[in-house]
Write a protein that binds this DNA or RNA. Structure first.
Length: 569
RNA sequence: GCAGCCGUAGCUCAAUUGGAUAGAGCAUCUGACUACGGAUCAGAAGGUUAAAGGUUCAAGUCCUUUCGGCUGCACCA
């Protein structure tokens, strides 16, 4: 099943070929405004430039050859040389009927399926997940869902921060100040308390600092007691993370943290040095990038002068392991934009090593504080992710019991969760991933306007119609479009199939969020203008199909964003 | 200092990657509730896209300069 833009592009290219013009210049896209019809093409203007001739004349010669039978009215030449297409009612009706009988709602699978490995979320052990982790976690999950739906293979790997200098302090604290009861109650809070206690002691007591460092060295050299403590902190932290992932409905295929690569680091460095890729400079083993101007004076260190390894070392070892184990076509790193340089260096190094895999940094903007400064991990003032999610659910529950349906307590609780969590996820996914934003409870937890609850509400209203109709919609019922609002909804529905694949072009879920919002908007206008249940039987059946398609598209699209729809709210 | 990202309505953000008269949501104002669910709809108002130049049929988008902001830049992750 082809989308309108695919069919029109095909017809346009045939016409270009027939007119002796360059076919590759022909592409038809959604009109920027309903005044210009449903679809538009600017091929005539592009070709006019290449041939140094009149665009409207070229447009006329295309019109002379183009066959749009069965899909569009004869295109109109407008403006500087645009071709405007208007889909015929017959085409819309039959395309909608096909969509109604298709579980994929017309969305094609990828022509060339790829294998992706997605690296996202990556929380640090012994630290709570905070708002800064929202974007990576939710974006990564969404990209995974979309890629799988489009027929790609995906490995989701949570590269957790389970190794590092902080464990010296945590272990020292564990041995001296551990409160078992508090640990059982809220493990991460207790671990954070230990870390902070030791940290502040170190400021006044040199011996504490020294002993904490010794604990770290013992851990790194495999001391059984410290290894056991470390392992326990990792597992306790992971259990806390899992609670949040369960709440967010997010699952990983792998959980290979930094520690997994420890044994690979020294051999990797030796190998790179032997191959001449890395060289010693000022006592440290470095990789230089003389062939890349931007990195000419920016080497990356993979082994410190004291023999210790770094983040870059682990990341390189991780790439090697991933390529050897899963042979992905592409590895995606869903990590904040400030780390752009690190990834540039990392990818350049991987290239020098001859690792055959496309590496992409899916960067996103930072969450800023009230002062418009970036929220730093070290500040200790971070807002916990769990707090945000719980607050969202509390607010949803309050609105629900205030003005929602009178639902049984269990359903009410479940619905409050779907609404609250949906609002948080949608707030993230509906904006361009690269823009920074100021953290705001009200924005993240908004339930009105362009929000998930708005979309969920549209879905719920449709379900309500179905309950009152007392018979399920019949997808085989003929669809007739007479009212402009019906037509607008029909065109919008068919564009779902064009929107979903576009998400992966530049990994931008906000394209889907924007689409779903427009769909719900278009539906609401239809809903106001076109009575469903009170109409004549034929019209009623046709409109029920439109309702059904809208509900299924909303539910499916939100599902790709990781958001579920309640049937009542 | 060098590099990267950014600057769009009072606020928060879009803009199909160079397409037509720059669009939404909040907030403000005017209408629509004996309702197929008002978490809604119809409408109004709000802009020299930081500034100046350039490229072309066409620039928020590409190039140059200036101003302002953020981020990164050898032994943290």
């Amino acid at each position: 099943m082809s989308t309108p833009s695919e069919v029109l592009t095909q017809r346009l290219r045939e016409a270009l070929a027939a007119a002796g013009l360059d076919q590759t210049r022909g592409s038809v896209m959604q009109a920027t405004d309903t005044r210009f019809g449903d679809y538009q093409a600017n091929a005539a203007m592009v070709l006019a430039k290449e041939h140094k001739s009149n665009p409207r004349q070229i447009a006329a010669s295309i019109l002379d050859k183009i066959d749009v039978s069965g899909i569009s009215a004869t295109p109109e030449i407008a403006g500087a040389g645009f071709l405007n297409f208007r889909l015929t009612p017959e085409f819309l009706s039959s395309a909608l009927s096909r969509m109604a009988n298709d579980p994929r709602l017309g969305v094609p699978t990828a022509d060339a399926p790829r294998k992706f490995l997605i690296d996202f979320s990556s929380p640090n052990v012994a630290k709570p997940m905070h708002v800064g982790h929202i974007r990576s976690t939710i974006l990564g999950d969404c990209i995974m869902r979309v890629a799988r739906f489009l027929g790609h293979e995906v490995v989701a790997d949570n590269h957790i921060g389970d190794w590092g200098t902080q464990f010296g302090k945590v272990i020292y604290g564990w041995k001296h100040f551990l409160d078992r009861e508090a640990l059982a109650k809220d493990a991460i809070s207790e671990l954070v308390r230990l870390y902070r206690t030791v940290n502040s002691l170190e400021e006044t007591d040199e011996s504490v600092k020294r002993e904490a460092r010794e604990e770290l060295v013992k851990l790194q050299s495999g001391d059984p007691e410290n290894l056991a403590i470390w392992k326990e902190t990792v597992e306790l932290s992971w259990r806390e993370f899992e609670k949040l992932y369960a709440l967010l409905d997010i699952r990983f295929d792998e959980r290979l943290g930094e520690s997994f690569y420890n044994d690979a680091l020294a051999p990797l460095c030796d190998d790179l040095e032997k191959r001449g890729i890395a060289t010693v400079s000022e006592g440290a083993l470095c990789i230089f990038f003389p062939q890349i101007p931007a990195l000419a004076d920016k080497p990356t260190i993979i082994r410190k002068s004291d023999g210790g390894f770094l983040y870059a070392t682990t990341d390189l070892a991780t790439i090697v392991h991933r390529v050897e184990t899963w042979h992905p076509d592409e590895i995606l790193y869903v990590v904040g934009a400030p780390q752009a340089l690190h990834f540039q260096q990392l990818f350049a190094a991987a290239e020098m090593m001859g690792l055959h895999c496309t590496l992409r940094h899916i960067a996103f903007g930072s969450i800023l504080g009230e002062n418009r400064k970036i929220m730093k991990t070290r500040s200790g003032e971070n807002i916990g992710l769990a707090d945000v999610l719980n607050e969202a659910i509390v607010r949803a529950r309050a609105i629900l019991s205030d003005r929602g349906d009178h639902l049984p307590p269990k359903e009410q609780e479940e619905t409050a969760r779907l609404i609250g969590l949906g609002a948080v996820k949608y707030a993230e996914l509906s904006q361009n991933r690269l823009t920074d934003y100021v953290f705001s409870w009200d924005k993240l937890l908004a339930f009105e306007g362009n929000t998930a609850p708005y979309l969920q509400n549209a879905y719920v209203r449709i379900q309500s119609i179905f309950r009152k109709a007392e018979c399920p919609p019949d997808p085989s019922a003929p669809v007739t479009l007479t009212d402009p609002a019906e037509r607008a909804l029909a065109v919008k529905l068919l564009q779902y199939a064009e929107t979903v694949p576009a998400i992966l072009d530049d990994f931008r879920p906000n394209l889907l969020a924007n689409y779903l919002y427009e769909l719900a908007n278009t539906y609401h206008s239809f809903y106001e203008a076109c009575p469903v249940l009170k109409s004549e039987p034929d019209v009623r059946a046709s409109r029920l199909v439109l309702c059904d398609l809208t509900a299924r598209t909303l539910s499916h699209g939100l599902g790709l964003l990781g958001i579920r729809c309640p049937s009542r709210m």
